[in-house]
């Protein structure tokens, strides 16, 4: 009896996939023409049996968990059980060794590319959401905009007073993030390398065996402070209302400038698969859906910024 139900469910799934694949293509066209209509049922629907193994970064988990709920037709509490979230490193490891079919992450770093090369794996990457690397200061700071060069010099210890960049005669306190954190890696990538960056302000914290050690001090929003993070966190999470985002080269970081790519420091999120993924794989159908109007709208609904730049 169980086998009978299994056969029926597989047949149903095949029918659904065939129908939804056709629907997916047409949705993409409609989006381009700006003629999409709001629908409750997503254009792609999948069964549990055909669902691939998906993994990814923590920061993107709200997206791919919501996506699983949409495409599997489940509530999110149920759907969450059908996706892994092993963080960036774990997700790449799983993709490389075949334990994951697709991952939602930032682009691979050197270590991950090296591991892929050793395993004979090549990645295909699809940018699907935009993000921004942003700097913030105390709201009372009169400085509104900085250039990337000025930021570089602030963090190199060459510019030490806000007066040098059009502000008050107040010492700049350039806060940093903990080594190995996403934001600190972003700093090295976009502004200044680890060899050039000045020593971070530190604070004494308790360590093991009753010792007290220096640790990277947490941004305190004092008069001269400057800190950095990713736009998603600042916009959606628990940063104080008393901070102000700094324009870079005169361009304010906001949903629009990040979506269209005019904000100078854009970091994108990607769907990444192995390039040997079959052309007719359900994984590729999911990528099409993610890049479609429906997939992009789902991103916005979850606090992310769509990729309007097409790059």
């Amino acid at each position: 009896m169980k086998r009978f139900f299994k056969i029926i469910s597989i047949l149903t799934a095949v029918l659904l996939v065939t129908a939804s694949y056709a629907a997916c293509s047409s949705t993409g066209d409609e989006a381009e023409n700006g003629t999409e209509t709001a629908v409750d049922t997503p254009s792609l629907q999948l069964s549990v049996d055909e669902w691939p193994v998906i993994d990814g970064a923590t920061a993107l988990s709200p997206y791919y968990e919501a996506m699983a709920a949409e495409l599997l037709g489940m509530d999110i509490e149920e759907a969450r059980q059908y996706v892994y979230c092993n963080k960036t490193d774990g997700a790449f490891e799983n993709l490389i060794n075949g334990r994951a079919d697709m991952i939602f992450c930032s682009l691979p770093g050197e270590g991950q590319l090296e591991a892929a090369k050793e395993a004979g794996v090549t990645f295909e990457t699809y940018p699907f959401l935009n993000g921004g690397f942003v700097f913030f200061v105390n709201k009372s700071n009169p400085v509104d905009s900085l250039t990337i060069d000025q930021l570089h010099d602030i963090y190199a210890g060459k510019i030490t007073s806000w007066k040098e960049v059009g502000g008050d005669d107040v010492d700049i306190i350039p806060y940093q993030r903990t080594e190995g954190s996403g934001s600190q890696n972003g700093m090295y990538k976009y502004i200044i390398g680890p060899d050039e960056i000045m020593e971070a302000p530190t604070q004494l914290i308790a360590a093991e065996m009753g010792d007290i050690v220096d640790a990277v001090a947490f941004y305190d929003n004092s008069e001269g402070a400057i800190g950095y993070s990713y736009y998603y966190y600042v916009a959606n999470m628990h940063y104080s209302d008393d901070i102000k985002l700094i324009k870079i080269d005169g361009i304010e970081p906001n949903d629009e400038t990040i979506a269209d790519g005019t904000y100078p420091i854009i970091n994108q999120s990607f769907v990444i698969i192995r390039d040997d993924t079959p052309k007719d794989s359900v994984v590729r159908q999911i990528i099409d859906w993610v890049l479609s109007e429906e997939g992009q709208a789902l991103g916005e609904k979850n606090g992310y910024i769509r990729n309007k730049s097409g790059k």
Partner: peptide, 19 residues
């Protein structure tokens, strides 16, 4: 922040995955 250790030891991490 996500991808950043929020807790005290490597064995146990707490992060905020969404707002």
């Amino acid at each position: 922040e996500s991808e950043e250790v929020f807790a005290y030891t490597d064995q146990f991490q707490i992060k905020l995955a969404s707002p």
